[in-house]
Design a protein around this nucleic acid. Structure first.
Ligand SMILES: [Mn+2]
Ligand SMILES: [Mn+2]
Ligand SMILES: [Zn+2]
Ligand SMILES: [Zn+2]
Lengths: 148, 148
DNA sequence: CTTCGGAATAGGAATGGTTACTGATTGGAG
DNA sequence: CTCCAATCAGTAACCATTCCTATTCCGAAG
């Protein structure tokens, strides 16, 4: 099977397009950050991404990873979420969805199948603020931590 | 009108009871933190609370305020919420409700009238995690900032 | 009213995630 | 190839929060 050929997947095309429209340049470091996000199983922190990127390119600076992540977030390629007692977690899934973090081991995973439909519009209807984003953050104990 | 007499309001009784059950002691510093939270208009940060408490008792330490807030949160008297680009905000309203923060001036206010009813149970139904808490955090521009 | 032991506090140092700064590097337009 | 703006690496600074320790406070027991 050859569903992807290097940098030519559908996802990549979309990302290229978002970079083009934004005026930012798709540098090798930013590509490396994207690759690290793809490889990561869960929802990595900036530090996690940094360590992954460093394996292939030991010269990257942590600050570059932060800057890349913030550019990627600005152009809508990645999303970030904040839990208390954890550094910011990054996510290639930019659709509205739920993520839950284990309070004990820190693992983050997604909660599929929850209907959020009217929430955002209800919010817009009930506040005079111009709503930019709504983030739902769930905390709990993962299956292996709840038995311990 | 005399709806409250010093420390004897209904709210105070409830708080006393929560302290009694928890085993923590209701010290003067913790009372002062509660007073500061009541006085505060919006959703103050720990630093805001600290500055308010300091006006009456200049000897309090910032660390004490943090510790008091964490005790108060643990026993269910206050709630806290996290937005990116802002220190943690504290709230005497511990019922599930929505708060929105202005991305420009930082003001936090509540969004009444949004029905959250089945969200929490939908979440519990769709994840193997043991859900501890769900926090919804809304970001936007307040009426005065949106025109600027 | 004293004494005693554990809890809480003041003050300040340390931590950790994130951002800011600066001089060097890069890569694309011309 | 040359030039310029964007980006980068490396490092220092920042800021919210936590940690540490000697001192103080408080409440139960006598
Ligand atoms: Mn996710
Ligand atoms: Mn609130
Ligand atoms: Zn876990
Ligand atoms: Zn505003």
């Amino acid at each position: 099977m050859e569903t992807t050929v290097g940098m030519s997947s559908v996802l990549e095309q979309d990302i290229r397009e978002k970079f083009r429209r934004s005026g930012y340049t798709l540098t090798s470091q930013r590509r490396a950050v994207l690759e690290a996000l793809k490889e990561a199983r869960g929802h990595p922190s900036a530090e996690d991404v940094y360590l992954t990127v460093k394996r292939k390119n030991p010269r990257v600076a942590l600050g570059t990873v932060y800057q890349a992540l913030s550019v990627l977030e600005e152009i809508g390629v990645v999303d970030s979420k904040h839990w208390s007692e954890s550094p910011t977690r990054y996510d290639l899934n930019v659709e509205p969805h739920l993520d839950i973090r284990c309070a004990r081991c820190g693992a983050v995973s997604e909660i599929p199948g929850v209907e959020l439909g009217e929430l955002e519009e209800n919010i817009r209807y009930n506040t005079p603020y111009e709503v930019k984003r709504t983030t739902i953050v769930v905390e709990g104990l993962c299956p292996s931590c709840r038995e311990a």
